[in-house]
């Protein structure tokens, strides 16, 4: 429902920040962000407002959650199967 785009904060100027989205820069307002933002942080942008500072450790948590899920979902018996599946796919790409 809400197009949210993550981007990298380049500079902060009081209540706004310049944010880089894949090489596209736009000034984003900081009124709504939940914690202080500094250059080098990632933020989630929606309609020109940062609505979340994205802590790097939370990105890691998300990725680990997915790895965990894969491990659990596949179970011991299936593990080899998935590993070979991933290997096959790697060679395909």
């Amino acid at each position: 429902m809400c197009l949210g785009v993550p981007g990298l904060v380049v500079e902060v100027d009081d209540l706004t920040a310049v944010v880089d989205f894949w090489g596209v820069r736009r000034r984003v307002r900081l009124d709504l962000v939940d914690e202080p933002v500094a250059a080098g942080d990632y933020v989630l942008n929606h309609v020109g407002f940062a609505i979340r500072r994205i802590p790097p450790e939370d990105v890691q948590t998300t990725l680990e959650l997915y790895e965990q899920l894969l491990k659990e979902a596949s179970g011991d018996l299936m593990a080899t199967d998935v590993r070979s599946e991933i290997e096959n796919l790697k060679s395909e790409f």
């Binding site: 197009l3 785009v5 989205f21 894949w22 090489g23 596209v24 736009r26």
Partner: peptide
């Protein structure tokens, strides 16, 4: 181009 992709993502 990456910049075109970037704008594409931003404006949907």
């Amino acid at each position: 181009r990456d910049t075109v992709r970037g704008v594409a993502e931003l404006v949907g």
